Computed example of a mutant assay.
Amino acid sequence: MGRPDFESLDVYRLAESLANEVWQVVKHWDIFAKDTVGKQIVRSADSICANIAEGRGRYNFKDNQRFIKIARGSLYETISWLRLAYARQLINSEQSLKLKQIIDELSPKLNAYLRSLDNR
């Protein structure tokens, strides 16, 4: 079995970058923040790239579409958690901007990837 091809997808690499950036931020929070918001945001961010990978591995366009839609839902969930983290002063403006830049690039690419699957 060869190397999985999902790793070559820009959309996957962006999702992985977002998940790793979220991890780097959350690992410095106090126990209460990690246990409440932290676990949720890490799971939702990790879910984006995990669902892109799983969908790609299905080799069926309908299944792949379903997983990309789940990834998009996880992206929206991550955005919601980031908004709450910012409002609760768990992330600062610089961290927020860095994460927003990734999201601003990831969101349209995720939608474009989903559309490309619709056209097959």
Rank of each mutant, 00 (worst) to 15 (best):
L82Q: 05
L84P: 00
L114A: 05
W81N: 09
A85F: 03
R83G: 13
N119W: 10
F67I: 11
E105Q: 15
K39P: 01
G73N: 09
K62A: 15
T78W: 07
S44W: 02
K34G: 06
I70E: 05
K27W: 06
G57D: 04
S80W: 06
A112H: 13
K100L: 12
S8R: 14
S107H: 13
L110Y: 06
T78H: 06
R115N: 13
Q24W: 01
S47N: 08
K34Y: 08
I70A: 02
V37D: 08
T78M: 04
I70F: 00
D30Y: 06
K34M: 09
L75C: 06
S96R: 11
I102R: 02
Q40I: 04
K62G: 10
R56C: 10
S116G: 10
G73P: 07
W23D: 13
I103Y: 01
L14G: 01
E7W: 03
I102E: 04
A50Y: 01
S8A: 14
L84Y: 12
V26T: 12
Q24C: 09
S80E: 03
Q65F: 05
L97A: 11
F61Q: 14
N64V: 00
L106E: 02
E16L: 14
Y113A: 08
K109L: 14
K34W: 03
S96H: 11
K100A: 12
W23S: 10
C49V: 09
S8E: 14
P108S: 07
K109A: 11
N64S: 12
L97W: 00
N64F: 15
R88M: 11
S107D: 15
I103L: 05
L18A: 09
I41V: 15
A50H: 00
S44C: 10
F67M: 08
R66T: 06
F32A: 14
T36Q: 11
G38L: 07
D46P: 00
R3P: 00
R72D: 07
L90S: 00
K100E: 14
G2W: 00
R72P: 00
Y59V: 00
V22M: 04
L117G: 05
E54P: 03
A53L: 09
I103E: 03
R83H: 07
S44P: 02
D10P: 12
F6Q: 00
D63W: 00
K27N: 10
I79L: 13
D30W: 10
Y113Q: 12
N111A: 13
A50E: 06
A15E: 08
A15F: 06
